[in-house]
Simulated scan of single mutants.
Amino acid sequence: MNTMPIYFRNTPVTEPFTFDSIGNNWIQDQMNRPKGYPKYHYLQTEKGRGILKVQGKKYTLNPHEGLLIAPFIPHFYYSSDTSWQTTFITFTGTIESSISQLLDNRQIIFVEKELGIQLGAIISQMVENYETHPEDSLSISMDCYRILMHLSNGIHTQDLMKEPLYQRYVAPVIREIERHYDQNLTVQSLSRQVYITPQYLSRLFQKFLGCSTYEYLTTYRINKAKEYLMLHQRMEVQEIAGKTGFLDTSHFIAMFRKQTGVTPLEFRKIN
């Protein structure tokens, strides 16, 4: 296996999102792009430390910290350590033009360590999967979408983490949902974990995220169900319901239809 894997797309673009280039364990050289890069470009430190200058600002990228840069934004980066090792991905796809809207038209997004660990793991898994199954374009597209959604969510989370009530009550509940969405979570059990009433927790979710705790939990589970439906074509709907925390298949189908307008099987056919 290549110790410094890097791959460039060499087939026609047929998926909504995919990579134009991707790599990890990369010994990063100095790079000066006075006209920017033509794609959305995410660069993250694995080891060492790098300096990135863009739009008059200087960013220090410590391990697991990263920066997403929009197309054609001039930038310059270099190592501030003996060796700077990076992970990176650039994005393309049939709906590439929608990325800016997905990211609130941000030209620069700084990624802190906690999110960077998640993104680095996804990119590393993508590289490993591409080495063994380069034809699996659907899985690649889903992973690219996951990265973009993490970046989109990270925009709002960075601002919200400045809010004491969000940090104390809402953020721990979101982490619990992300880790254990497949288990028998309820608004009551989640609120007990942060020692407040279910009603107050839902008011906080509504204030900061625009939805109730139950709506957030259900939406997260439905999004996970979409991944199962697309990536595991032979998995039964009943099994997907169980894997995403729904105890009753009929309830799962009803909630899925309410959120998406179609049944799980119709969603699978469409996609």
Rank of each mutant, 00 (worst) to 15 (best):
residue 166 Y to V: 03
residue 130 Y to T: 00
residue 103 L to V: 06
residue 21 S to I: 05
residue 266 E to G: 01
residue 140 I to D: 01
residue 196 I to C: 11
residue 109 I to E: 02
residue 125 Q to W: 10
residue 154 G to L: 01
residue 245 G to F: 00
residue 13 V to H: 08
residue 200 Y to I: 11
residue 60 T to R: 05
residue 92 T to W: 03
residue 111 V to L: 14
residue 64 H to Q: 05
residue 80 S to T: 08
residue 270 I to V: 08
residue 271 N to F: 11
residue 58 K to I: 08
residue 219 T to A: 13
residue 195 Y to T: 02
residue 225 A to D: 00
residue 124 S to L: 04
residue 115 L to R: 00
residue 214 Y to W: 11
residue 224 K to I: 05
residue 74 P to V: 09
residue 133 H to D: 12
residue 106 R to S: 15
residue 238 Q to P: 01
residue 137 S to C: 06
residue 66 G to W: 04
residue 5 P to Y: 01
residue 227 E to S: 10
residue 198 P to E: 11
residue 93 G to K: 06
residue 267 F to M: 12
residue 38 P to W: 02
residue 72 F to Y: 15
residue 23 G to F: 03
residue 39 K to M: 08
residue 43 L to C: 04
residue 216 Y to K: 00
residue 201 L to E: 01
residue 132 T to V: 02
residue 146 R to P: 07
residue 61 L to R: 03
residue 160 L to P: 00
residue 249 T to H: 04
residue 159 D to L: 14
residue 249 T to I: 02
residue 152 S to E: 03
residue 127 V to T: 07
residue 74 P to L: 13
residue 199 Q to L: 09
residue 149 M to S: 09
residue 237 V to T: 12
residue 198 P to M: 09
residue 132 T to I: 00
residue 209 L to V: 06
residue 123 I to A: 00
residue 201 L to Q: 01
residue 39 K to D: 07
residue 253 I to P: 00
residue 209 L to K: 03
residue 238 Q to D: 14
residue 156 H to F: 11
residue 66 G to E: 05
residue 102 L to Y: 05
residue 129 N to Q: 13
residue 88 F to M: 13
residue 40 Y to G: 00
residue 47 K to S: 07
residue 67 L to R: 04
residue 9 R to C: 11
residue 134 P to M: 04
residue 91 F to M: 12
residue 149 M to V: 13
residue 50 G to M: 10
residue 110 F to H: 09
residue 189 S to C: 07
residue 194 V to W: 07
residue 134 P to N: 03
residue 91 F to N: 03
residue 72 F to R: 13
residue 208 F to A: 09
residue 246 F to P: 00
residue 159 D to S: 10
residue 39 K to V: 07
residue 16 P to V: 11
residue 254 A to K: 10
residue 211 C to S: 10
residue 121 A to V: 02
residue 233 Q to E: 14
residue 82 T to V: 08
residue 121 A to S: 11
residue 200 Y to L: 12
residue 229 L to F: 12
residue 212 S to I: 10
residue 141 S to K: 02
residue 68 L to G: 06
residue 42 Y to F: 15
residue 126 M to E: 01
residue 122 I to F: 06
residue 7 Y to Q: 09
